[in-house]
Amino acid sequence: MTTLVTPAVPGPGGEQDERPAPSLPPGMLPGTIPPSPPPQAARAGWWRRNVVWLVLLPVAVVVAAGASSFRVWAFWWPTGLHHEVDRVTQGGVAHYAGEYYDLGLSLPERANTDVLREVDMTVTNVEQVATLPAPQFGDPVEVPDGSVAYQVQLQLAAEPQTDLSGCQIVLVADDGTRYGEDTSDLLLGSVYRCLPPDAEDSLSVQPSWDVTSYVLVDADATITQVWLAFGGPEYVRTDLPPR
């Protein structure tokens, strides 16, 4: 086997040298390993000689795969509901805790800081309703054919001045379909789904308050869970009793 690698010690000058290399005895083919100096021990096998690289190879594969999977945490993980923070059955108090980066839109003193948002959620009632109440503006939305409307009632508790913008009240069906993920209430027109209807901004006022939200659901769906989230990745989950 020939190779393109020359020794670290360069050959004799750059001139054209037609003689075989000095260490090559006459008659040897170029590229073969010279017989001298005589081997002290039996030559180690290829696997032994390359054992370091063989061990490093799987490590390198893992490192390369990890390095190229940055999109998982950079793009996928933060945009979606992936991290279940707490899980209770109906009647229990689910404790939401998640950090967000505050831009100072509601409270200037929080601008450009990471804020830990903590909210306790108690699902008080989930039931189907035949009609939707009148929205803040415009005509009431008719329940479209093929849909049913659910009324979700929650009791929320948080430190006053907790920012509740971007709140999502999600109904999850037994097949995993997520209804009502929007951060604003399409049906009632309210921008802050997790605050009382008369809320002036996205900050909570009372230590504890009730909210009612309406969600359109496929007529044949079976709702089994209620989630509370603020854009993700954290969410809390309340399992509804089978009905």
């Binding site: 690698v5 020359t6 670290a8 360069p10």
Partner: peptide, 16 residues
């Protein structure tokens, strides 16, 4: 550097 030098030398040494 040594590896790079070797690769260059491997090719260049035998060239006119």
């Amino acid at each position: 550097f040594r590896i790079g030098r070797r690769v260059v030398a491997a090719v260049a040494d035998d060239m006119s």
